[in-house]
Amino acid sequence: MSQRSEVIRLYKTLLHLGRDYPKGFDYFKTRLKSAFMKNKDVEDPGQIKAMIARGEFVVKEIEALYMLRKYRTLKKRYYES
């Protein structure tokens, strides 16, 4: 897979995850776009690969936060705090 398609896939994945962001989708979308636009001129393949790896780490962190939020919600429903 080319680096360009990996970056696009990462952007779409993050955009999809942003739908449930606590501060709202518009806030997430503008921050995501500015982060990607800031690095649009990078041409070094090694640096691009490192940024993709960092982006995938961010995806995992966001997913973990969403799972934690779901767990806490379910726990509140069934147990008294």
Rank of each mutant, 00 (worst) to 15 (best):
E63V: 12
K29R: 11
L68Q: 08
L15Q: 09
K49N: 11
R31E: 12
V59A: 11
K70P: 00
S5Y: 01
R9P: 00
A53N: 02
L17E: 14
Y78N: 06
R9M: 07
I62Q: 10
A50G: 08
G55C: 09
R4T: 02
G18T: 01
L10E: 00
I48C: 04
H16F: 05
G46Y: 05
L65M: 13
R19E: 13
R69H: 06
L32Q: 11
L14T: 13
R77V: 09
G18V: 00
F28V: 01
E61Y: 04
R19Y: 04
Y78F: 06
I48T: 08
A53F: 00
A53C: 04
E43L: 02
A50H: 04
D26Q: 09
S34R: 13
K49L: 11
T13A: 15
R69D: 11
R54K: 15
D20Y: 07
A50W: 00
E61V: 13
S34W: 04
L14Q: 09
M37R: 09
R54Q: 14
V58H: 01
S34P: 04
L14F: 06
F28N: 04
M1S: 15
L17V: 10
Q3T: 14
D26I: 01
A35M: 11
K70A: 14
K38P: 01
R4N: 13
D44G: 01
M67I: 07
K12E: 08
E6I: 01
R77H: 10
K75Q: 06
Y79N: 02
K75G: 03
K60V: 13
D41A: 05
G18S: 05
M67N: 08
L14M: 10
Y21C: 08
K60S: 14
L14S: 09
M67Q: 09
L74C: 10
M1H: 06
M51L: 13
G24H: 07
G55M: 02
L65A: 15
Y71T: 11
F28R: 00
K70C: 09
L15E: 12
L32T: 12
S34A: 09
M51V: 02
D26V: 05
V42T: 12
L10K: 03
Y66F: 07
S5E: 13
G55E: 07
E43M: 03
Y78W: 02
R72A: 07
K70D: 13
L32F: 09
A50N: 06
R19W: 08
Q3D: 12
I8K: 07
I62R: 02
L15R: 12
V7A: 15
T13M: 09
T13D: 13
A64P: 06
E80H: 04
V58G: 04
K38S: 13
M51T: 03
F28D: 10
K70R: 10
D41G: 07
